[in-house]
């Protein structure tokens, strides 16, 4: 494609994925929820699952994700998305059923639901957006907030004496035999975003092949509630979150490699 070519001769190399609805989102500038939405949508498009996909949105900043994807959708109670996905998937085994959950939703109020969905080997996928804070309610401490991290409910920094320690959910779920594919990725630079996209696609393939439970944890930003610029937030992910939440593949069963 040439920059000066007339419009009619230009080739489209980048456009909105079909699985994303053509509407504005309410996400803050610089928030990586937008990136993870796009990656999920691209994965659905590339696998040709648009007519068979069902998203279970959760309670958090992504509560309206049912609006942002152009696929069948429902909206679960806080933390219950994996249970709702279980119900949907059991009666629709050939559909792609995935949850899209924040860290408060998945790692605090919904811990029982996510652990048991994984333990049952439920063939659903969790897209887990870990931004180390409660975004929607205005920046309170999450189970994933780092020791020392200042939030509106840990104003002096997260004290492990008072609040204990962050939970590393990928490591926890990797212990369960029902888990087929559990990986942690990050959205802080292009290379990691590409790897995240590949992981989401793999997770969906794992589900459609009926191999068991899959989760892609995505280290994400919340510039608004972290009180940072968008670029500082990306740096904070790389420098502060990644060391506590190492990126990597935590459980990949052999059958995944044959996909």
């Amino acid at each position: 494609m040439m920059r000066d070519a007339p419009i009619s001769d230009r080739v489209v190399v980048y456009e909105r994925p079909q699985a994303l609805a053509d509407i504005h989102t309410h996400y803050c500038p610089g928030c990586t929820h937008g990136i993870s939405h796009r990656l999920v949508a691209e994965a659905i498009d590339e696998l040709g699952l648009n007519d068979r996909a069902i998203i279970v949105a959760s309670v958090g900043c992504s509560v309206f994700s049912y609006n942002y994807f152009d696929i069948d959708a429902c909206e679960a109670a806080h933390g219950r998305a994996p249970a709702m996905a279980t119900g949907l998937k059991r009666v629709s085994p050939d559909r792609l059923v995935f949850t899209y959950q924040g860290d408060g939703d998945l790692a605090s109020i919904g811990t029982a639901e996510i652990i048991h969905a994984a333990a049952r080997g439920e063939p659903v996928t969790a897209v887990f957006v870990n931004n180390a804070i409660y975004g929607m309610t205005g920046g309170q401490m999450a189970p994933t907030s780092l020791p020392g991290q200042k939030t509106t409910s840990s104003p002096f920094g997260r004290s492990t004496d008072i609040a204990g320690f962050p939970i590393r959910m990928s490591e926890v779920l990797a212990e369960l035999d029902g888990s087929a594919y559990i990986v942690r990725r990050s959205l802080h630079n292009v290379k990691e975003i590409r790897r995240a996209k590949k992981a989401i696609k793999t997770a969906f393939k794992v589900q459609m092949a009926g191999l068991g439970f899959s989760m892609v944890e995505l280290l994400s930003t919340c510039p608004t509630n972290w009180g940072m610029s968008a670029s500082d937030a990306l740096t904070w992910v790389a420098d502060t979150m990644v060391p506590y939440y190492p990126l990597g593949d935590y459980r990949v069963i052999d059958a995944v490699k044959d996909l």
Binding site: V56, C74, A76, A77, R80, A83, M84, A85, T86, G87, L88, K89, R90, V91, S92, A112, E113, I115, H116, R120
Partner: peptide, 26 residues
């Protein structure tokens, strides 16, 4: 036909919610 012994009643009713969204008798 699908039968799941859930981890709690909280989970059970939300599984019902999911299956009901798919339009089945649950």
């Amino acid at each position: 036909r699908p039968f799941v012994q859930a981890e709690s009643e909280v989970a059970a009713i939300n599984m019902v919610y999911g299956a009901a969204c798919a339009g089945v008798r649950v």
